[in-house]
Design a protein around this nucleic acid. Structure first.
Lengths: 227, 227
DNA sequence: GAATCCATAAATGTTGACATTTTTCTCAAA
DNA sequence: TTTGAGAAAAATGTCAACATTTATGGATTC
């Protein structure tokens, strides 16, 4: 555990202390600064972050809602452990939600939003030409997928993915280099997805997205030994 | 609002006060005892339930994670309002998640679990023959769908549905008689779903479940005027 | 009569202390 | 050495009071 109060200084100020703590702890968990499986002692953390236990406990309840920690009454909270099983289940869930999201996006996105998608994958293309390494940068990949999800205009799907799935996937990718967004294939698939949206073809969009995520899942399953 | 502490006496005791409060408030919101859009005043509720604001606030953070309330910093929490838009988005989300769940269930369910599914729909069949009213009882319908979801063995999908989707759908159905599980068609569709699982045919199971939920969605969309 | 400002009231955010449960450590006995 | 009981320590659960922000209401002005 050591001293994970270090990140707190960098955190942008939110409206309430509890909300700030939530963001700080979320980031510390995603990056692994607080390791998987760590017991989150309220008393120790309250001292480290120099806050009282009230707001801290509220932040823990929120992180529980994000699937980032598990809480057992009378025993406390632990950071989630990313087992091979959980990762694959996350990708199955993502496949279901995000393929539906892109089908809706094909109907509901504005042409302006589609333009933004183009700009994002053009940037990806440029970065991959410049850097010899054939990887879509993680941040850009997240932006792309979040733009699609927001384009669905479905707040329930949006919240489920962004609030409860993506954080865990980010955590996994941040802490496992081999999980990174991979080859030029991803960029090609991104182009296919945008094409389907542009054609206002929800079925094509859904199939294309499904394949994109299944590919990612397969890549991960292959590279992951037992865990 | 009036006196929504009445239900608290019926609540089964959980391990912590905060967890009890969460369940009590969840039920009160689902039944409409606390009406949609109601401002949830911490001070008033603390008095009514005779608890301090600490555990109450933690319960509110959890209900927020269940999509049952919305919280605005420095302003407080309100019970969610079930707009026509939100209901349809819930059903779209459910369609995506539950059709994936049943596909997984077709692969992962034990034959013992499938037997339980049979018992449940047999009970539904019996109840519909006895009561002239051609409705699948809501509680039995929930049990059926939850058994399927658990059968997927995917904890992420299970939590998303049970924790964040079903509560809102229960709330909608409880507060709108017209939203009830409808005709004999539902029972037939349940039988088709069990058949597909029994055949270990994930694709058939997925298509069948998707149709089942789309039908429910269409029924609701028809019966709902603007909102 | 409507709008604005200020004082008051009330609500949310935060804190530190108390209560109860769980964990840890010590010491004795098998 | 290992096991078990019991006391001590530490952790989680809960409460009541304080701080700060937001909402309310009446008086004043236009």
């Amino acid at each position: 555990m050591s001293d994970f109060a270090t990140l707190s200084s960098v955190t942008h100020s939110s409206s309430t202390l509890s909300a700030e703590l939530t963001n700080t702890l979320r980031d510390a968990i995603i990056t692994g600064e607080i390791a998987q499986g760590t017991k989150l002692s309220e008393t120790k953390m309250a001292k480290e972050f120099d806050v009282s236990r009230g707001p801290l406990r509220e932040a823990l309840r929120r992180l529980e809602g994000m699937n980032l920690i598990m809480h057992i009454p009378q025993q406390g909270a632990r950071v989630v452990t990313l087992s091979r099983e959980l990762i694959l289940q996350l990708y199955d869930t993502r496949e279901a939600l995000e393929s539906k999201a892109v089908a809706l996006a094909a109907v509901n996105m504005t042409s302006q939003e589609i333009d933004e998608l183009h700009r994002e994958i053009d940037a990806q293309s440029k970065q991959m030409r410049e850097n010899s390494g054939a990887f879509v940068p993680a941040e850009s990949d997240y932006r792309f997928h979040e733009m699609v999800v927001r384009g669905s205009k479905n707040k329930v799907i949006e919240r489920a993915l962004i609030h409860e799935i993506y954080n865990l996937i980010k955590m996994f990718r941040y802490q496992n280099e081999f999980a990174n967004t991979s080859s030029t294939n991803s960029l090609i698939e991104h182009r296919q997805i945008v094409y389907a949206i542009e054609q206002r073809d929800p079925i094509l969009a859904e199939v294309t997205m499904k394949r994109h995520i299944v590919h990612a899942r397969e890549r991960i399953e292959r590279r992951m030994s037992a865990n």
